[in-house]
Amino acid sequence: MDIQEVQDRIIREFGLFEDWTEKYKHIIKLGSKLDTLPEEDHTESNLVKGCQSQVWLTADLEGDKVIFKADSDAAITKGLVALMVTFYSGQSPDTIIGTNPEFINKIGMAQHLSPTRANGLASMVKQMKIYAMAFKAKLAT
């Protein structure tokens, strides 16, 4: 799916919620439905550095698309991680490099993406882009 369409879909989905309780419950539900990483992928090298909750991320190239898988030990972070995976996974390296997760602002979750937030989400997005750059270089050779 086109990444802008994914973005619009997420924004529409979150537009349904009236208050923070519903929004956070939905985020937690998204996290619980995330196709998580097997335990053996919870390694130091897959760990995205965050101060409080931990995020693990893997990336593979399928054809010319990047497939991300991720997990977190905290429920809210995991939901936000699931949103990022929905957003970026299955896109081309160029699309990933060139698109920022603007929906996070629009659904009122901007504070979770702040680089000073200790949940590792900002580092995760950075790491996803680094993977995309590496795959782009690989595809070019």
């Binding site: 956070y24 101060c51 409080q52 909750s53 972070t77 200790a118």
Partner: peptide
Amino acid sequence: GIHPTDAGTILDKEGIAVRTGH
């Protein structure tokens, strides 16, 4: 069964400032 970061986030929504983490 609740990660301290998750609990801290909900407590913050309720106006309670506590520290979470190590």
